[in-house]
Amino acid sequence: MSQIQPSAKALDLARQVLRIEGDAVLALIDRIDGAFLQALGLILNCRGRVIVSGMGKSGHVGRKIASTLASTGTPAFFVHPAEASHGDLGMITRDDVLIGLSNSGESAELLTIVPSIKRQGAKLISVTGNRQSSLALAADVHLDAAVAQEACPLNLAPTASTTAVLALGDALAVALLDARGFGAEDFARSHPGGSLGRRLLTHVRDVMRVGSALPEVLSETRVADAILEISRGGIGMTAVVTDQRRVIGVVTDGDLRRAFARDLDLRTLSVADIMGQRPRTIGPDRLAVEAVEMMEQHQINQLPVVDDSGLLVGALNMHDLFKAKVI
């Protein structure tokens, strides 16, 4: 069985698709006007949720818009218009705002539920490619997402039109995010399972070693005993503290290697003879990602953790941060 080989024409067609869809999105810029601000106002003052609805490809785009809104500070979910007329309409209350998506503006399933939505007092924002359509005329606010042509060579398959609506939905979500003062920490709270959430929500206290797992010695401790403490701790170093547990230095694997290289008799030395003084430390309430940045900047692999008085409360190394998936 012979295989079909794509021709060079396919590359030209692919570039044309991207060009048409790019032009469709750029054309929206001049339509960001008072109607867009009215839509923002309706959503910002909404006491309920934002409901996004649409049929077919508009429905798929609507699910993504609802998801983007929800993850950027605007509570939202998708309702299928056909299911809405068979009971799911009960998900929508008078305090909600419905965003109806339909390129033609004549989607029968969507138009069927509009009277009920309006009757109970919910607001309607329509996003269509026809400002004279039934859905556009019934809406409290209409956003024009018309495109000059679809990217499909037949000018039939929803391509440029769905891309335009998707981009318009992103514009709404980002404008709402900014208006609400939604920041990186807010975003992390709605994405706790992602890498950003871990980076912005994980603090040093969440990953540091404490109690018996914390390696520490006094300055007068023999180096031989410090070696045992470093091995017990398993993080490649031990903190050196005063009787009050104030950190005055650290002894790392590197310090031991340098002492060996100088041919020092480690049996006769105390920790004070080889420790690194004025070590880098970090507070328990700092973000774990800040510990990563400090380690990378100063080319170290371990950090003692101290409180505001400089007293030892914990320690961590790069492996702890890897394990917590902060890196």
Results as ranks from 00 to 15, higher is better:
A145L: 13
K57N: 01
D95S: 12
D243P: 11
G310E: 06
A10I: 15
R267G: 10
N130W: 12
S71H: 13
G169F: 02
G249P: 01
G310K: 03
R232P: 04
G314R: 06
D30Q: 15
R286I: 04
L101T: 09
V217S: 04
V141E: 04
S231M: 06
T74V: 10
E106V: 07
K118W: 02
L89F: 15
M91L: 14
E293W: 12
V289F: 14
Q120N: 12
V174L: 15
R94G: 06
Q132L: 12
V289A: 10
A213N: 11
T162R: 07
G233Q: 01
I248D: 01
A291M: 03
A151Y: 11
A24R: 03
H298N: 09
S133E: 12
V251M: 05
L269S: 05
A164K: 03
I51R: 00
P6R: 01
P75A: 13
R15Q: 13
A27G: 10
S85Y: 13
L311Q: 14
R180Y: 10
V207I: 09
D225W: 05
G234Q: 02
S161P: 05
I282P: 15
A136D: 07
L110G: 00
A175F: 06
L124A: 06
R198L: 15
N317K: 02
D285W: 12
H191W: 03
V127K: 02
V165A: 13
I113M: 11
K9N: 13
E220R: 14
D320H: 08
A151C: 11
A272Q: 14
K64D: 00
R286G: 05
V210P: 01
G87R: 00
L40E: 05
R286S: 11
A14W: 09
C46V: 00
A35K: 11
S102P: 14
I300S: 07
H60V: 10
P284L: 06
V25R: 00
R31N: 10
K118L: 14
L89P: 05
L214W: 15
L168T: 06
H86K: 09
P153R: 00
V240W: 01
P158Y: 02
F182A: 04
I274C: 11
L316E: 02
E21A: 07
L166A: 14
V52S: 09
R189G: 05
A82S: 15
L264M: 15
D273I: 07
D307G: 00
L177A: 05
V207M: 12
A188S: 10
R94S: 13
G41H: 14
H86Y: 11
A167E: 01
E21L: 11
V271L: 10
A148R: 14
A139C: 14
V79E: 04
A224N: 13
G22H: 10
F36N: 06
P192K: 07
R209S: 10
V271Q: 08
E296I: 08
A184D: 03
L166T: 15
L311H: 14
P6H: 01
A76I: 07
Q5N: 12
V250L: 00
D263F: 12
F260D: 07
L98G: 11
N45S: 09
G56I: 04
M208P: 08
L166N: 09
V241Y: 05
P158T: 03
G100K: 09
I4E: 10
Q297I: 06
H142G: 03
G100T: 03
V127P: 11
L69F: 07
G54W: 01
R280A: 08
A272V: 13
A82H: 07
D144F: 09
